[in-house]
């Protein structure tokens, strides 16, 4: 992947973006056990496959979610967080 589509600014070279890691849903800190929280903080779904990831377009300051296959490094879609339905 050398190009990435920012949902706001369109397709841009990858050098303009910063990878923000896998998006993981946080457990409820009020109710979850220490173990569940530690798992959320430290562990990752490391196996290859389609993942939701945070990406940041630097020049415009836009965070968004990219659905990317980490095996083939191909992005199937990108959208602003929470706007998955409209994407």
């Amino acid at each position: 992947m050398k190009l990435l589509q920012c949902p706001v600014n369109g397709t841009r070279p990858i050098s303009e973006f910063t990878y923000g890691g896998e998006y993981r849903e946080a457990p409820d800190p009020q109710t979850c056990s220490d173990k569940v929280w530690a798992d959320y903080v430290h562990n990752r779904h490391g196996a290859p496959g389609l993942k939701k990831e945070w990406w940041y377009h630097g020049p415009s300051g836009t965070w968004f979610i990219a659905e990317r296959n980490t095996l083939t490094d191909s992005v199937s879609r990108t959208y602003l967080f929470g706007q998955e339905k409209d994407a």
Partner: peptide, 13 residues
């Protein structure tokens, strides 16, 4: 820090 603020802003809506 600015970047993290932006991300959390989106996340927390």
């Amino acid at each position: 820090v600015y970047r993290e603020m932006q991300r959390n802003l989106q996340l927390w809506g």
